[in-house]
């Protein structure tokens, strides 16, 4: 390409994206499908409150594999890692802040039953 020869000879593969062998992609797909079956199988077992933790943990492993290999995150520079981690940290901060609030409210039910309570009160007043 005549008008950007200076960049095209510089643009070899090492400067653009990383090439991953086909076998890796294939194996990753197989692992992901197996993990999907495991997700379903594990949901039949009752871990009590840990049900959601187990499900999310497996999902995170799957998501990590997709990001690392399909999305080439493994070969990206640290700045992209930071901007992948940042929103996840914010998600936990958001959940954390809200879970500091709601479960420590005295009784969530009182917020829903206020109209009934005032009715009783006005009835006794009369």
């Amino acid at each position: 390409m005549a008008h950007n020869s200076h960049s095209s000879h510089a643009a070899d593969h090492s400067e653009l994206g990383h090439i991953i062998p086909f076998a890796v992609y294939r194996n990753v797909l197989i692992i992901l499908l197996i993990l999907t079956i495991i997700t379903v199988a594990v949901s039949r077992v009752d871990f009590g409150v840990l049900n959601i933790v187990v499900a999310m943990a497996i999902a995170s492993v799957k998501a990590g594999i997709v990001a690392a290999y399909f999305m080439h995150l493994k070969y990206e520079n640290p700045i992209i890692w930071i901007y992948v981690l940042f929103p996840i940290i914010l998600l936990f901060l958001m959940m954390g802040g809200i879970f500091v609030d709601n479960p420590t409210r005295r009784d969530p039910k009182i917020y829903y039953e206020v109209p009934a309570a005032t009715e009783n009160q006005s009835a006794t007043n009369h």
């Binding site: 914010l90 901060l93 802040g97 500091v100 609030d101 709601n102 420590t104 409210r105 005295r106 917020y111």
Partner: peptide
């Protein structure tokens, strides 16, 4: 990113959350 609920001290959030 971690101070937002100071807008809500009297909006019905819990005492614990308000303190934090």
């Amino acid at each position: 990113f971690i101070v937002w609920a100071h807008h809500m001290f009297v909006a019905g959030i819990s005492d614990t959350a308000a303190k934090v």
